[in-house]
Design a protein around this nucleic acid. Structure first.
Lengths: 331, 331
DNA sequence: AATTTTTAATTAATCGTTTAACTTACTATT
DNA sequence: AATAGTAAGTTAAACGATTAATTAAAAATT
């Protein structure tokens, strides 16, 4: 069973490969190829089950009609959902998506970028790992179309689709305060990324404004030992002299681990302690009552990121926009 | 900033592109290229930040060193985890993975296969959608390396990595019976796929063996309207004359929806009703007590699927194995 | 000194497509 | 009858990399 190329179709019909290419790409304008031959070619292609070789096409055309999506971990439901929407939208625009996982490692991210570039992706959508600003800078330098999503670098002039982390966390905290939860804690990752810092800042500023802030309200857990750290932090909070009334979890994975740790100790959510989660997770969906959470517009993030990227790719100019989409406070 | 190709490196050093290719691919055995020139070439490649064009390489070599992974929905954590492991293992073998979502639609699956083939993937790993046996057959006919995972077609002679669905469900049901839950229900999807039928059969046979089976113990929900159907089914079960003592959920998404629906009605899991879940989900991880579930060896499935695929690709012969891995009953 | 062997490269074809430029045979116009 | 115009193709180079076959010079062997 030989591979079916343009040449094979051409030979079978006694025409040149060029003619076949013209017809199959709909470029037989102003009398390039006769109606009759066009039909023959189209029929023969279907008969032989012709599949165009996009490696050859990409090589010739200088673009691959594919984009790279780099996330931390595709098994995390936030990234999975983002990927799903990006793929769906990309497909409708004629692009394929190749996904890479960094596992939050800089070295891994570097490897993936090389890999994707060698595969000639036309552009990249990245949720950058901590400390990857120089790497991002180097992508900008080779003028490869690029959009950051979810996380950005304020100092870098690069297209980004972000959310209003500070403001939404400020509002969420304020709401807790207004509802009477005076002594709250905030649990975030032990890292130094702009977007998570902003979330923390939202919490801190709201507490300060109400003159309720003390530094020990902010706790950190590490990505690698999430469950253990969480158990430690939660038990610290529970045996505090001044009773903790609410806990603000800074990400979806933290929310999950946090709620789990609370339940393990027999703490009743909303009765003993109120929680505020970032992202809608199964953890809070299961309760027979509403648990307040911050909902990110994931689908819109995906769409905007792709729009910005395709604009860069097709207009060939790197115009940088930073978009701040609005997250929603659901309670 | 011109693109850096082999030719560019060659020109800068006054040698031919062939020499550069030889060196950069480590093929300068038995005195093809001098040590001196080798070093120069390697240094220059690094200096110019050379990135090989894998479209060109793939075109020439006849393989792309990439594989296609087709799943139902990458935002589903089961598929996300599968994808993560497949990617990790593929990477260590020098392959890229391109993921496609079928959304359980046959037409979509057909489109994706065409797409991936045009991108010259060297092989495919597929979780086939319902009714896709003919489509799978057509892939076999063009002798494209192929491995099915999670779901298989018993009548098709195709490499597959599956689990012992019947046996593990039989055992799980038997365990429920042994623990005293005499009147159980089984909730699965309204579809006709071999792997889910096997799960149902496991339940039914175990109940029959204990002379506890009645046909109305088996309920069905549809994928498209899961939550509504689940609420309907659960309320049916709750107002049954004969009290339902345990519910067996046939997949991870069903488990999630089922537990949620029960909690919404104030039913206490394990106190009022025992549950048995397929897959470990957040739904059951959150309880402060152990909820029994069936654990699939996802990482091993990923590894075996890739092993079988790469074997096919590299040995060029399509030797079909059907692997049945063992799921584990955790309680 | 003549011949063989080894070393260090180069040449040229090829993978499958695309497309600008060209050709050839008709038809229409003056 | 000579010229222009159109219809329906073909030719050939190019994209970037690989590799079998070849070449040319230097070193080793007789």
């Amino acid at each position: 069973m030989k591979k079916v190329s343009l040449k094979v179709i051409a030979r079978e019909l006694g025409v040149s490969a060029a003619t076949v290419s013209l017809v199959l790409n709909g470029k037989n304008k102003n009398g390039r190829v006769s109606e009759e031959m066009s039909k023959k070619i189209i029929d023969k292609a279907a008969e032989l089950n012709y599949i165009p070789n996009s490696l050859a096409k990409g090589l010739k055309m200088g673009h691959s009609k594919s984009i790279g999506l780099i996330v931390a971990d595709i098994s995390n439901v936030f990234f999975g959902t983002l990927a799903l929407h990006i793929q769906n939208y990309a497909e409708s625009e004629g692009y394929t998506v190749i996904i890479g996982n960094t596992n939050e490692k800089l070295a891994q991210m570097e490897k993936i970028i090389f890999f994707l570039n060698s595969r000639q992706v036309d552009g990249l959508i990245i949720t950058p790992a901590e400390g990857s600003d120089e790497l991002i800078q180097s992508i900008l330098e080779i003028k490869k179309p690029l959009v950051l999503v979810d996380r950005g670098f304020p100092d870098l002039d690069v297209s980004s689709v972000l959310i209003n982390n500070y403001e939404i966390c400020f509002r969420a905290t304020k709401q807790l305060i207004d509802q009477g939860y005076k002594n709250s804690a905030f649990i975030g990752y032990k890292q130094n990324q702009f977007h998570t810092n902003e979330r923390k800042r939202g919490f801190v500023e709201a507490m300060k404004e109400a003159a309720l802030f003390t530094p020990d309200q902010v706790k950190e857990v590490s990505y690698q030992s999430l469950e253990e750290d969480m158990d430690e932090v939660i038990s610290q909070l529970l045996k505090c002299a001044q009773k903790v009334e609410a806990i603000f979890f800074a990400t979806n994975t933290i929310s999950m681990a946090g709620v789990k740790s609370l339940l393990k100790r027999g703490v009743l959510i909303q009765k003993d302690i109120q929680v505020m989660c970032f992202d809608e997770t199964d953890a809070i969906n299961l309760f027979p009552f509403r648990v307040p959470f911050i909902k990110q517009p994931i689908e819109e993030m995906a769409r905007k990121a792709l729009e910005l990227l395709i604009e860069q790719i097709e207009k060939k100019e790197v115009k940088n926009h930073k978009l701040f989409l609005e997250a929603e406070l659901i309670s």
